[in-house]
Each structure stands twice: as C-alpha cells, then as structure tokens.
Design a protein around this nucleic acid. Structure first.
Lengths: 149, 149
DNA sequence: CTCCATGCAAACACTTTGCAATCCG
DNA sequence: CGGATTGCAAAGTGTTTGCATGGAG
C-alpha cells in the first residue's frame, strides 16, 4: 500500500488538493508518533526536508489534518498545542501519564471509563461522546531516582 | 470567622504581604465559584471595585494564589487559562462535563478513578498523584433541543 | 525605613490573517 | 486556466517582564 496515494485520496475525498507541503507536515507527525510535537517543532522538522515552507502553512495544515480527523491536538497546559496521529481503531482517545518530576509523557491504551458513561447519563443527564484523562504522578525512572514508594 | 483576616493570615504564613489588590482578585474568584473565569474576565471584574489595578497585578496574583493552593488553573483548550477556587476537602480535583453544542461546563463531584490508580501502578509502573478528567458530550438542555437520544 | 508589590508600557511567544504570487487538477 | 494553496510580513492575542514608584510591615 502506497502512503502517498492514500494521503492523496483522503484529501481528494474531502475536496482538498494534494501538495508536497501537506504531505511533509503529515509525514513528520507520523514519523514522530508518541513524541507529541508542538507546531514549532513540526515546522522545524519539515524545514529540514522542505526549507521553503512557511510557518503559516504548517499551522494551516495542522488545522486541516485535525479537521480531517487524521491527527489530534492535545494540550498539556505547557503553552503549546501538541499533535499526535489519530489511530482510527481507537473508539476513545488514549490517555496520558504525565510525570511531575521529569515531564515525560507516556501513553496508556486502556479504556477506563467506558462503563462509567452510562452512570454519568443517569446521574447528570449528560450524554458523553468522548473523554480525556490525564494522570499526574511519577514515572518509573523518577520513582527509582527519588527513592519514593 | 473573618475572611479578610483568614486571607491575611494565609499570606503571612507564606511570607507574602496583604494588599487590597490581592484581596480583590481572590474575592472575585470566590464570588464566581463555578463560572471558570479567565484572567481577563477576572481583571474586568476587579476593575469595577478597584479601577486602578493593572493587568500585570492580576496575572501575578493569580499565579501566586495558584502556587499557594488557594485556586486552581484549568485549561479548556479555548485559549484561556481559567480559574476555580480550591476546596481543600477534595482529595482529587473534581471533573468537568463539557457540552459540545453550547459550550457549557458542569462540574461533577464523583471520584471516578480512585480505584483504578492501583491498577495503573501495576500495569505501567506509574505512581498516580492526581488525575484530571474531561468528558465531552451533550448537556441536558442541548439533548432536548436537538432531540437526540 | 526597607523591601515587597504595583502600574505602566514595552516585550514576548504562539498563532492567525491579508494579499499577491504560485501551483494543482 | 481558475480557484485553492502558499509564503511573507504584519497583525492579533493572551501573558510576562523591566523598572521606577508606592505601600505594607
């Protein structure tokens, strides 16, 4: 299966044009799966392969890809909008374990809250469509280093 | 119990001075419990009672109050940092039900994940200290209006 | 009286927008 | 070709900082 053609096809389906700028931006996000790059970092990486690209194009493309559902924007409250690829097998987005000591971010695949959503509807008359969970604490490395329980 | 003296005392304990600017900022956050005001909104409200105050003071004070644990900053990914009062009875922060239709934000007090944290430690070697959950979906009003299930 | 805290304006950092030039289809 | 897309620079937005003045303790 050919990536370029796949990407091309998805764009066309939505009535958008294929450009190498868009391909390069998408590639960088895909190639850095799990790194939660922010827009500036993506811009820098794309520039290595395509130096003429402008910041505005990167921002516009990221918004486009997010709207198309190919990537997700995540906010770790550090002042940057960060992006990760959308894996369409996920019904709900995965969750993040954020280390308070070193700032590392680990992904966790379990769907914790699926069973709880019905209860929320009963108790709060609120129909849950998606949820987002962030856990703050200490990662394996820092637990060892800090010698805490 | 006298609010002004309480607030004064907490500041002194941490080695900070009592000023009427600080009191006014804190008061506005307390008086608007549940409204998740952003910094600009807080600035506007404080100015009604204390017109000479500057934006910088509001930002500095909000950071100070957060650091002291009197208020929490929350990020609803709308480009603003929003604040809510910290209720120290809460072991974990409460969670938010965010309506995708009208944008309303409702608070939910249940602690959903307390029991799950041990499992996370087993599975991921990650020691959870706190967690933050946001549910996206449709609120009671919008469900009625939109006539969805 | 001594610093801490304030107000002001300028500086910042990230993102968005306007517009002419360019390129895809 | 014609309209979507791009690059550039300028404008926006929310927030932070430098510094002289002011006020709490």
């Amino acid at each position: 299966m050919n990536n370029q053609n796949d990407f091309n096809k998805i764009l066309k389906e939505k009535g958008y044009k294929f450009t190498s700028q868009r391909k390069h931006v998408f590639d960088v996000v895909v190639e850095n799966d799990g790194k939660h790059l922010n827009s500036q970092e993506i811009y820098e990486l794309v520039r290595k392969k395509y130096p003429e690209i402008g910041v505005a194009t990167v921002y516009r493309t990221l918004a486009l890809l997010e709207e198309m559902g190919l990537i997700y924007g995540v906010d770790f409250e550090d002042g940057f909008r960060r992006y990760e690829i959308a894996k369409n097998e996920e019904e709900h987005r995965h969750h993040h374990l954020i280390c308070l000591e070193c700032g590392s971010i680990k992904e966790m695949e379990e769907d914790l809250l699926g069973t709880i959503e019905e209860r929320i509807y009963q108790n709060n008359q609120f129909k849950v469509i998606n949820h987002r969970v962030k856990f703050y604490g200490y990662c394996e490395n820092c637990i060892t280093k800090m010698n805490i329980k």
